[in-house]
Computed example of a mutant assay.
Amino acid sequence: MFGDIEGAGFEVLDERFERSFVGHATVERLWTGGRWLEGPAWFAAGRYLLFSDIPNDRIMRYDDTNGVVSIFRAPSDNANGNTVDPQGRLVTCEHRTRRVTRTEHDGSITVIADRFEGKRLNSPNDVVVRSDGTIWFSDPSYGIATDYEGDRAEQEIEGCHVYRTDPATGEVVCVVATMAKPNGLAFSPDETMLYVSDTGATHEKDGPRHIRKFAVEGSSLRELGVFATCTAGLFDGFRVDTAGRVWAAAGDGIHCFDPDGTLIGKIRIPETVANLTFGGPKRNRLFITARQSLYAVFVVANPAAQP
């Protein structure tokens, strides 16, 4: 474990952010040595964190009891986003196989979704499981654009969308078809709203670099407009806490938004941040996956229902 890190720390932009952290809390670098880290998922029963190292084709495991980092799965089919379902099972987005899978308690892997209307998915990116067991995931084309984070291939589906699937029936439904490159996603605490980031600016000049908000109406969504626009790089993965604040990965760290969309503060990280999740015994520690390193910091916040 490393000590205090130059260029890292809390930046208050609105007094509301001061209630989100303890003044002497510091950002810690827990591990470094990856190429592009993503998909942190906390497993409370074992007190460990899983996270993806996409180009290195592996899922890593951080043991919170002793600080040891080891390889959980390699190869991982260029795994990206991960989450935990209500039964404590790992749900993973895989670039190379262009599918969403679930790792069962016995270690076997079940395919949750790999096609929509008979066509192969692009490269599932991030995923969240609702309390009713349905799985919602984004499907941009980053994993098939080059050989760096997957295998280069042509898109079979026109466009990049957000999908909902019910593992009980296997049905895959497109719920958002109006985004350039849908990326991170998370539900509000009461699951009546879904937030989705669009990183279309990676491929379009002046393209989207924002988070959009949708009302959940049964198994479908209703557009509510842009929640926040990124002012430093692009939003990637993010989480929502019990107070409805959105903690979003960005180019200079984590941006924290009040539920009304106001940017109230930042946690500065000296690497581009890809994703984050709440973990630790009290679920008050942010685990942060950046370009090459895993960071952590204690906050005065706890996650909404989803892992």
Rank of each mutant, 00 (worst) to 15 (best):
D147S: 09
D132H: 05
D139L: 04
S131I: 09
I144L: 10
V128H: 00
F137G: 07
F137M: 12
R102P: 00
R120L: 10
I135N: 03
G143M: 01
F137H: 07
A153V: 03
D151A: 11
L90R: 13
E117V: 11
R115Y: 01
D85C: 06
Q87R: 15
G143Q: 00
E149Q: 15
V129A: 04
E156L: 08
D139A: 08
V84K: 07
L121Q: 08
V111Y: 13
W136V: 11
D132N: 09
T101Y: 12
G150Q: 02
P124R: 00
F137V: 11
A153L: 03
P124L: 02
V100N: 05
G118R: 01
F137A: 13
T146V: 13
Q155A: 07
N122H: 14
A113P: 13
S131K: 15
Y148E: 05
D132S: 11
I112N: 08
T134V: 11
L90I: 10
H105C: 06
P124H: 01
T134H: 09
R152K: 13
G133Q: 02
G88Q: 02
G118E: 04
T110E: 15
D126N: 11
T146Q: 09
R152Y: 07
Q155L: 06
G107V: 09
F116C: 05
T101L: 11
S108Q: 12
R120I: 05
S138I: 06
S141E: 11
T83K: 08
E117S: 08
N125V: 07
R99T: 10
F116I: 12
P86Y: 06
R115A: 02
F116N: 01
S108D: 14
V127K: 07
R152Q: 05
E94I: 00
D114G: 12
G150S: 04
R98D: 03
G88E: 02
D106F: 09
C93V: 12
N125Y: 02
T92N: 01
A145L: 15
T83V: 11
V129T: 01
S131Y: 15
V84T: 07
T101C: 12
R102F: 02
S131R: 12
E149F: 12
R115M: 01
I109F: 03
D126C: 14
Y142F: 15
I109E: 06
